[in-house]
Amino acid sequence: MATNAFRRLDTGRLSTLAVVGAFALLVAFFALAAPSFLTAGNLYNLLVNNVVLLAVVALGMTLVIASGGIDLSVGVSVDMASMVFIMLLAAGYAAPLAVLAGLGAALLVGSLNAALITRLRISPFLATLGVLFIGQSVQRLSTGGGQPIYLVRAEFAPTFDAIARSSLLGVPTPVIVLVLCLAAVYLVLHRTVFGRQVAAIGAKPGVAWYSGIRVPFQLAKVYVGAAFLCGIAGILLSSTVKSYVPMSGNAFLLDAIGATFIGTTISRERRPGVLGTLLGVALLAVVKNGLLLVGWNFYWQQVGIGVLVFLVLAVSFGLHRRD
């Protein structure tokens, strides 16, 4: 009986169960091993500091990977938004203007990616790698070799708090921002004609082109959209830490790729998707936070995450091979 029921589940649902099960096990484990894990304070910290920023960046990465590409320059988009935002605030410009300029800087990075990929036809990997190098140099040149800019004076506190520490009906603003981004990307990727065309481009660009889809135009939108999401993350990041630390955005790159690919395992066709990515982000965030609480060394956390990614992918591959 049990094996029959097991067989009747298709592998997509089985993979989903495996990933959700792993997530539940991890939560249970950390709840037992670290009494402070399930406290309200820690969960708030987990959500606002670990989940929101990574999730917003990973949503951008999900769009890009769904289109069959990769964006190695997400960190640059995060950093450029953060840098322009902080520099304009420091120079005395109004906060709304600084936010818009920061988002504009991220859009520029995205447009550069889009131009390299669709006009010069450079592969996404190499194009965004080039932009990563350029972006890092720009940051060093603009900050005297990589000096952080701290805005600790009291006059800036209201701006930062309004973005990072405010709340609406008890929900922290960053969480609201995340929910809005999630809803937007979900609708765009899974419900619109554009999203369907992006999936087709990701599956087989030749078929998309031969079906009358304007492949370069749609790809350009993907890279600009991803950079915009990274820009939002950059503004949130700067407001949380009240500073701009050059090249700090790169910390999101590998986690965002990891989360997106963990997310693909819950789909029957192994496609990137918003819900899967969210689950991947939550998994990574719980492991990081939990290992910290049980007192693991920071460097061992990376090992923990590596093992986690391997396990999820191995289980998923094992399940898919049954077909």
Binding site: T192, V193, R196, Q197, A200, V207, A208, W209, S211, E269
Partner: peptide, 27 residues
């Protein structure tokens, strides 16, 4: 160029005519 074998019959068959089955850009 003809069909994307990693996509479903539905996604392939409607790929060129999505505009007909959509409203305000939503499928």
């Amino acid at each position: 160029h003809g069909v994307a074998i990693g996509l479903s019959v539905r996604e392939n068959a409607s790929l060129a005519s999505l505009a007909r089955y959509s409203r305000n850009g939503f499928v």
